[in-house]
Amino acid sequence: MATEANGAEEGGLVFHPMDQFIVSPLFGDGAVNMFTITNVTLWMAITVLAVIGLLVVGTSRRAIVPSRAQSIAELAYGFIYKMVEDVTGKEGVKYFPYIMTLFMFIVLANFLGLIPMAFTTTSHIAVTAVLAMAVFLTVTVLGFVINGASFLSLFWVSSAPLALRPVLAIIEIISYFVRPVSHSIRLAGNMMAGHAVIKVFAGFAAIAAISPLSILAITAMYGLEVLVSFIQAYVFTILTCVYLKDALHPHH
């Protein structure tokens, strides 16, 4: 990257682990407006292409005995479908396409972000906050639409002693509103931290004596990040299912 080249010219160790997250216009050097085509646009488009490649092109043969791509598509489908059904019950199945959209976007964006020189769209709090807020608002609205005012019984722990209930209600309400924050920061934080750490190790590789160790560390971190990419997508999705379950069945 250009900034790294600058650092090398200065001589000595200069780390720019966060430079990989800079949003910059793809064409020209102008300011980033709302509709500017940026590296975010590029990598989100690649994510869409990956979704098409896996779930549409991969399954185009509709084979009874699936090919590899079709197997992966079917596995992903079965994995999320079963998750939605297990967590939210039969009534939740109609929200399966939304949850599948979230999962496919996050898991593919995470994996694509691991390609060297790639931009990780899910490492940005703006992206994950929108995802989390979308889930939070949808679930809250859905809870009130389906259950009416009795949705508020989610905060009224009827199994606890009466004296404790108001205290618990306050805690429940706080935890409810903290959900989108933790939901979004967990994903963005995990993605950002992993990529930054890899970059820091890469910076150390400039010193000849440490470089073998550094490369080994990068390899290990990369393996861990592959795992984290999937796990964070899974966690985000299953938490979405759990929140959806609260909206469908608010009574404890």
């Binding site: 779930l55 959209t101 769209t121 703006a126």
Partner: peptide, 28 residues
């Protein structure tokens, strides 16, 4: 950069949603 990211994210999600709900999921 937030506006830019949010705009493209929403575009992406809508596109993925339509691809999934119209083509991919019924087929699978």
């Amino acid at each position: 950069t937030f506006g830019n990211q949010i705009f493209w994210l929403i575009v992406t999600l809508v596109v993925i949603y339509f691809i999934l709900s119209r083509i991919a999921l019924p087929r699978i």
